[in-house]
């Protein structure tokens, strides 16, 4: 394991958009551009922790009204009933529709909460430079990215019910404020997961930076110039 090298330690960055591995001479990624797709190059996503924290805090703040305000209002024969996410699940259970209650409970309550906790755990463990279970934490990150989108189910249910139940004075379904906050929470947590850089989990001593330019390092280790093909075939970044 000790001989494993990371791209950043070798002065190389992976383009975030086209995944090209690019050598950045001098080890300063400021202003470097990908030669293939012209995106900005970074060894690590810039200000990843700060941005992820900011988005996460915003998501948590919006998650409270998302659960306390009703997400929809059903008006039927003059009677009006507003449901929050949780009371919607309870009503499904009372109606004996427990498989449906389970789907909505998992998508609207378990997934968003698990995602918020997972991102907090990842952020704190990275900030503490924890060496524990990097593989598991990387997998946790991938799960977070993969399942976060499923929280949108409740928004689609509200939209479909509102579209279908339009019987004038007989019955009507309307989206309420809670759905807006909930949609915003889902969007913010998705962007938060995207701003988190999972490579930070593996950077034990903080964000890695090359110690020396790669060519100088190759020479220092006494390699023949022709044999240092590992960086020679990697493209150089535009300045």
């Amino acid at each position: 394991m000790s001989r494993q090298r990371t791209a950043a330690a070798e002065g190389m960055a992976t383009c975030h958009d086209c995944h090209l591995l690019v050598a950045i001479p001098g080890g300063d990624d400021h202003g470097a551009k990908c030669p293939r797709c012209h995106s900005a190059l970074h060894f690590r996503k810039p200000a990843s922790l700060q941005r992820t924290w900011a988005l996460l805090v915003a998501a948590v703040v919006l998650y409270i009204p998302a659960n306390t305000y009703p997400i929809m209002r059903v008006t039927s024969l003059g009677r009006s009933q507003a449901d929050t996410i949780l009371s919607g699940v309870v009503h499904l259970l009372e109606g004996g529709m427990w498989p449906l209650a389970l789907v909505v409970f998992v998508a609207s309550i378990v997934v968003p909460l698990a995602k918020l906790f997972a991102i907090v755990h990842l952020l704190i463990s990275v900030q503490r430079r924890s060496p524990k279970k990097p593989v598991e934490r990387t997998k946790l990150y991938r799960l977070t990215e993969m399942f976060g989108r499923w929280s949108m189910v409740d928004i689609y249910v509200v939209a479909m019910l509102a579209a279908l139940v339009q019987l004038g004075s007989l019955a009507q379904v309307e989206a309420e404020l809670g759905a807006v906050f909930f949609g915003a929470t889902v969007v913010l947590t998705m962007i938060a997961a995207e701003s988190f850089d999972p490579r930070l989990i593996w950077d034990r001593r903080g964000p890695e930076r090359p110690h020396r330019p790669p060519s100088a390092r190759g020479a220092a280790e006494g390699r023949k110039p022709g044999r240092d093909a590992k960086t020679a075939h990697v493209r150089k970044a535009h300045g």
Binding site: R3, A7, H19, Y141, W202, D203, K230
Partner: peptide, 23 residues
């Protein structure tokens, strides 16, 4: 294979998206 620096020939070198390991 992880890059150990012992390989000759024209390797297609990539860095892991999630942990930055050179491969």
């Amino acid at each position: 294979r992880a890059w150990t620096g012992a390989h000759d020939g024209p390797p297609h070198l990539v860095a892991c998206h999630d942990c930055d390991l050179l491969i």
